[in-house]
Computed example of a mutant assay.
Amino acid sequence: MIFDIPLLNTGLDADIAHCIDNKTKPIGSLGKLELLAKQICQVQQTLTPQLKEPQMLVFAGDHGVVESGVSPFPQAVTQQMVMNFLQGGAAINVFCQQHGIEFRVVNAGINGELPEHVGLIDASISKGTQNFVKQAAMTDLQCQQALEKGSELVADRHKRGSNVIGFGEMGIGNTSSAAAIMAAVLNLDAQECTGVGTGLDKAGVERKAKLINKALKRAQLKKSTPMQVLAEFGGFEIAMMCGAMLKAAELRMLVLVDGFIASSAALLASKMHPAFLQYAIFCHRSKELGHKKMLKAMAVEALIDLDMRLGEGSGVAVAYPLVQSAVLFVNQMASFEDAGVSKDG
Rank of each mutant, 00 (worst) to 15 (best):
E312G: 04
L114S: 04
F336G: 03
M253V: 07
S68D: 00
A146Y: 04
A249K: 03
N22Y: 15
T198R: 12
D344W: 13
S224T: 02
Q44G: 09
A302D: 10
M138D: 02
S29R: 08
G259I: 04
L86T: 02
R252A: 08
G11C: 15
C96S: 02
D21W: 14
A334S: 05
E113R: 06
I125G: 03
T139L: 06
S29M: 10
V154W: 15
D338W: 14
G173M: 05
A155D: 14
E169D: 06
D156Y: 15
R104I: 00
V229G: 02
N107T: 03
Q75A: 00
A231F: 04
M253Y: 12
V257G: 04
A299Y: 10
Q45D: 12
S264R: 10
F3Y: 13
G119Q: 07
A91D: 05
A146F: 04
G313W: 09
M308G: 11
I27G: 13
M240R: 15
Q324C: 12
L295S: 09
V106G: 12
G171H: 09
G100S: 07
M308K: 12
Q135D: 08
K217L: 06
A262Y: 12
E113C: 01
C41I: 02
A37W: 14
A265E: 06
G197N: 00
A190D: 02
K296C: 12
L153I: 11
S224V: 00
F132Q: 00
F167S: 08
A178M: 09
M1W: 12
L35R: 11
M227T: 09
H158P: 05
G128K: 06
L86Q: 06
G290T: 01
N93V: 03
Q191K: 15
F3I: 05
G259M: 08
L153Y: 12
N213Q: 10
C41K: 07
K214A: 09
I110C: 06
H158G: 07
T48N: 14
G28M: 13
N331W: 08
L303C: 04
D156V: 11
V94T: 11
G311H: 09
V65K: 03
G311I: 03
A334D: 02
Q324L: 13
D140F: 12
A262F: 09
E250H: 08
V318C: 13
L86F: 08
M294I: 11
